[in-house]
């Protein structure tokens, strides 16, 4: 599991991904962790297949009991199917996840961890020395969906928005935006169902001060590439499976 520190000041952002031991048949995913003093938040911790490499990678940077909070942007298996294993590794932790998915996510196995349902309008996660904002991203792509915004580090963990289908050898950061759009186009057109939801999200996210936009698949956007992405996404028509079938 490759680990990249994407922000490092009073608190740190770690990105985990590009796992060379990952079975080829499963989609590559990025997992993120914020370490803020004695507390750590693990975001979209991934599927069962990446649990062991993830846990191993985390223990190089944080103690197991330091990971007090988990976040799941939505209910998909590549996001949170490892929950049953985290439940045994971190029994005292809290899982922040969309309220509408609680009954579904619990199917992954959760006997110890506490489920904290995020309301539709969003919420915050207080890590003591750092407060994170949970930004609604409903229908992008799941019907209950959130992103994590760090106003101090100016980092937006954007879930499936900004995602690209990437090889394990792919670079961590977007280096040529125009070239990168070819890896994102189909993903967004097919997985994002609603132009209305897309535009609503863009208008709210444009008001945030973002230096890094970190998606759950593919590469991280830095600086001006964040605005380039928002402009590109605004122009893109999504929900094309319906349009193509009519």
């Amino acid at each position: 599991m490759k680990v990249t520190k994407i922000f490092d000041k009073n608190h740190q952002w770690f990105m985990f991904g590009r796992d060379p031991e990952k079975p080829e048949s499963i989609i590559d995913t990025n997992q993120y962790m914020i370490v803020a003093g004695e507390r750590a938040l693990l975001m979209d911790p991934g599927g069962i297949e990446v649990f062991a490499p993830m846990l191993g990678a985390i223990l190089h940077h944080a103690r197991a009991d330091q990971v007090t909070d988990l976040f799941a942007s939505h209910q998909d298996p590549d996001i949170i199917s490892s929950l049953g294993l985290w439940d045994q590794a971190l029994p005292e932790a809290k899982l922040h996840a969309p309220w509408i998915w609680e009954g579904f996510i619990r199917h992954f196995g959760m006997n110890n961890i506490e489920y904290v349902g995020i309301p539709d309008e969003g919420s915050t996660i207080d890590l003591g020395s750092l407060t994170l904002e949970l930004i609604p991203a409903h229908y992008l792509h799941a019907s209950g969906n959130y992103h994590v915004y760090d106003p101090i580090g100016k980092v937006l963990m954007s879930g499936d928005v900004g995602a690209a289908l990437e090889t394990p050898e792919g670079p961590i950061y977007v280096d040529d935006f125009e070239e990168h759009t070819s890896r994102m186009k189909m993903f967004h057109q097919r997985w994002m169902p609603s132009n209305r939801a897309k535009n609503d999200w863009i208008s709210r996210v444009r008001n945030l001060d973002i230096e890094y936009m970190a998606p759950q698949h593919g590469r991280v956007f830095k600086g001006d590439d964040v605005t380039r992405f928002l402009d590109w996404f605004e122009e893109l028509e999504v929900g094309t499976a319906v349009a193509n079938n009519n």
């Binding site: 062991a52 191993g56 990678a57 190089h60 330091q66 590794a89």
Partner: peptide, 25 residues
């Protein structure tokens, strides 16, 4: 299953600074 995965984590990450923190689990 969890126990086996934890064992595999310990085996492969002996050099991890916080590997001992897995012991209570």
């Amino acid at each position: 299953d969890a126990y086996q995965r934890f064992q595999s984590v310990i085996k492969k990450n002996k050099d991890a600074a916080y590997i001992g923190s897995l012991a209570p689990s």
